[in-house]
Design a binder for these strands. Sequence first.
DNA 1: GAATTCATGTAACTTGTTACATGATTTA
DNA 2: TAAATCATGTAACAAGTTACATGAATTC
Lengths: 179, 179
Amino acid sequence: MSLSYAILGLLSYEDMTGYDIKSSFDNSIQCIWPAHLSQIYRDLGSLEDKEWVHSRIEPQETRPDRKVYSISELGKREFLKWLNKMPKNFSSVVRDEMALRTFFGSKLEKEELILHLKMLINEKKETLLFLDETAEKIKNTPYESEKMYWLFSLRKGYKIAEAELSWAEECINELQKTS
Amino acid sequence: MSLSYAILGLLSYEDMTGYDIKSSFDNSIQCIWPAHLSQIYRDLGSLEDKEWVHSRIEPQETRPDRKVYSISELGKREFLKWLNKMPKNFSSVVRDEMALRTFFGSKLEKEELILHLKMLINEKKETLLFLDETAEKIKNTPYESEKMYWLFSLRKGYKIAEAELSWAEECINELQKTS
DNA sequence: GAATTCATGTAACTTGTTACATGATTTA
DNA sequence: TAAATCATGTAACAAGTTACATGAATTC
């Protein structure tokens, strides 16, 4: 359900196509709520069935026609209802394949596990760079009153990435101590 | 798929019922890979279809009969194959409702958001206590060669919980500065 | 010449969630 | 006496993933 509300929320800033919404995800909430394009199109369909959003076709010459969605009054009300009610889950849901593999690390060559952890570290360093760039973009947004909140959620992604990185470093250190 | 491998991995330590496996999850990998009982039963079914595990019924008098699963030789090989291959996702997948709500925080009363964040902090403090207790249990396990790895994955959950907690505190501080 | 971007989706499949159903025993 | 624990699942639904299909324009 949260994904639909995320889409509604983004549409409350401006009208967008499914493709635009996907880009917005990738440039802001991806790190805390990733979504596939196919999922977004599907949800837009059901949001339109419920009349929480409307769409119009904007023909283009050189590109495929744009199907532009806008949030309805009903949609705005439902969004605010969701935002104001006390959430069931304060906690994030994490599914962490590397931590799971590490759990079974005694069945793996130490060197192999260390290699995997080093690759994790590289990936996370890139993530941190990407999040820095994203933060810079947000700092230049014309949505002045939103800026702080957008940076808050980005910061959450940042902190999680940092935690993952330092975790991997600590694991490598301990593994090398005992080898 | 990872869930099936997690189940296989746990069964490689000892034979268990679905219910036992659920308890193992809750006492170890829950914070990095949560699972519902119904999911575990379903996966055990398909693992048995593939003959990666076998089961036997152990009748009980006062309790319902136990259906005890054990990993097969084939299952062990498939598990090790999974563990040894380079993972596609080094990164954890996070879906974080509170961070998403915070993204749209400009549409909420500041006091309301602060209240939600404070509840998150309370919940996370409890999580940290629970993880401390879990770590103590793991330190007493007779599985000596596994201990370090089990503590590694627990530590990952711990670090993420800490990150979430300090994030919420920082957000509250900034919100109170600007109000 | 190859890869990326823009732009639409659909279909099939896999996972995750919630509710239902049963029922004795033990602990608070 | 109410709630938790042990122990089995099934069914229905919601959400997430991957593959397929199309195709021009632009950038490397």
